[in-house]
Simulated assay, not measured.
Amino acid sequence: MTDSPARLLNLLSLLQTPREWPGSELADRLSVSPRTIRRDIDRLRDLGYPVEATKGAIGGYRLVAGTAMPPLLLDDEEAVAIAVGLRAGAGHAIEGVDEASVRALAKLEQVLPARLRHRVSTLQNATLPLTRGDGATVAPSTLTALAGAVTGRERLRFAYRAADGAETKRLVEPYRLVSTGWRWYLVAYDLGREDWRVFRVDRVTDPLATGARFTPRELPEGDEAAYLMRSMTRALGEELELDVTFEAPAETVAGRLPAHLAPVATGPDTCRLRARVTDSVNWLAIRLALTDVPFKVQAPDSLRTHLHHLTTRLTASLT
């Protein structure tokens, strides 16, 4: 193999298999001399790939963890698997999946060949996800379009459906995508309203990047985290003071709740969850029930009432 760039890519693909490769085997695979392999290994190191060499009569090479993340080479099956996983996580806002997942999906889908995009779509369309909360889902293509506009600082047009069903057209400067663990929101400066807005992404349709670049505006208040929290609170609705006790170890309960609901141990087999939340009482009731451990709601009263009504309806359905 005389084409040096092609040979380097093939060498890198082999090294990304988690094993140690003898230099002689690499030379045979690529039809070059061991000396050429040594030179190519040095080139990969210069490009930032941490290739470790072992000493000995035969000697070997393997790719190890470094201080930075170098580009990866993926075969067709690996690329499809990652794209499907990212789509599933992004589309349903699974806990722990945030804007970074959407950016990764946007980058991957941008370079996927048409045949692989078709395979991803086919598998996605044939899969029935089990959703939670109010069942609101987001098309991954919508998320990737928004993420691309945020990253590229590009003005964005889209249609938006308000809570009352009213349809409007918006032109915005997208600032940040925010995941609450069960919904996605877009924080943006609305040029038509000349003010900041928070949009539920599952109500956004037909997003279109205009190509017009912009310089990001400063948020009205210096504390970005505090402003975003207040914006999200207004968008989500009333903030609740949640206080729940569980008859189970804290680690058990924490493993069955979203990351933003973290109980604290009050004993070896008991724990307590106290938090300010903006989740709906219906969603909270379902999540607490899914912990499958005994619990008691101290507050808020609205959640206690909802649980009472839910229990009454479920009991009636059994008679």
Rank of each mutant, 00 (worst) to 15 (best):
residue 259 A to W: 14
residue 99 E to K: 09
residue 161 R to N: 05
residue 56 G to H: 05
residue 162 A to F: 12
residue 295 F to G: 00
residue 293 V to N: 03
residue 196 W to S: 07
residue 79 A to I: 04
residue 81 A to E: 08
residue 119 R to D: 10
residue 182 W to E: 10
residue 178 V to H: 12
residue 217 R to S: 06
residue 221 E to L: 14
residue 309 H to P: 01
residue 64 V to L: 01
residue 159 A to E: 02
residue 261 L to R: 01
residue 319 T to K: 14
residue 289 A to I: 15
residue 60 G to H: 00
residue 12 L to Q: 05
residue 127 T to S: 10
residue 227 Y to V: 06
residue 251 E to G: 01
residue 94 I to C: 06
residue 260 H to S: 11
residue 84 V to W: 02
residue 253 V to G: 01
residue 102 V to A: 05
residue 260 H to K: 08
residue 228 L to K: 03
residue 196 W to T: 07
residue 230 R to I: 03
residue 83 A to L: 08
residue 87 R to Q: 10
residue 314 L to T: 14
residue 289 A to G: 12
residue 269 D to I: 13
residue 23 G to R: 01
residue 78 E to Q: 13
residue 139 A to L: 11
residue 242 L to Q: 05
residue 227 Y to F: 13
residue 272 R to A: 12
residue 110 Q to W: 03
residue 164 D to L: 05
residue 181 G to T: 14
residue 189 Y to S: 03
residue 169 K to I: 11
residue 97 V to C: 11
residue 295 F to P: 05
residue 215 T to D: 08
residue 146 L to D: 00
residue 222 G to H: 15
residue 178 V to K: 13
residue 243 D to F: 05
residue 185 Y to L: 07
residue 83 A to R: 11
residue 48 G to L: 13
residue 8 L to A: 06
residue 301 D to W: 08
residue 72 L to I: 14
residue 238 E to K: 14
residue 173 E to G: 05
residue 278 T to W: 13
residue 214 F to D: 02
residue 106 A to H: 02
residue 61 Y to I: 13
residue 299 A to P: 13
residue 252 T to M: 15
residue 280 S to E: 15
residue 123 L to Q: 11
residue 317 S to M: 13
residue 9 L to T: 06
residue 34 P to H: 13
residue 40 D to F: 02
residue 291 T to D: 08
residue 162 A to E: 14
residue 277 V to A: 00
residue 222 G to N: 13
residue 296 K to H: 10
residue 219 L to A: 04
residue 89 G to A: 15
residue 8 L to P: 03
residue 278 T to I: 07
residue 178 V to S: 15
residue 180 T to Y: 10
residue 137 T to R: 08
residue 216 P to V: 03
residue 99 E to Y: 00
residue 17 T to D: 06
residue 22 P to Y: 00
residue 217 R to E: 03
residue 29 R to L: 08
residue 314 L to C: 07
residue 98 D to T: 09
residue 313 R to L: 14
residue 82 I to D: 07
residue 75 D to L: 01
residue 6 A to Y: 08
residue 167 E to P: 00
residue 69 M to Q: 15
residue 297 V to W: 11
residue 21 W to S: 01
residue 295 F to N: 07
residue 162 A to L: 02
residue 241 E to H: 15
residue 24 S to D: 02
residue 247 E to P: 01
residue 59 G to T: 03
residue 257 L to T: 04
residue 250 A to W: 05
residue 248 A to K: 04
residue 190 D to F: 00
residue 9 L to K: 09
residue 187 V to A: 04
residue 170 R to M: 13
residue 170 R to L: 03
residue 255 G to L: 06
residue 60 G to F: 08
residue 162 A to S: 10
residue 58 I to Y: 01
residue 24 S to T: 10
residue 18 P to T: 12
residue 128 L to K: 06
residue 287 R to W: 14
residue 3 D to W: 12
residue 195 D to A: 15
residue 207 P to V: 06
residue 231 S to N: 05
residue 265 A to V: 03
residue 47 L to T: 07
residue 184 W to C: 10
residue 308 H to N: 04
residue 169 K to V: 10
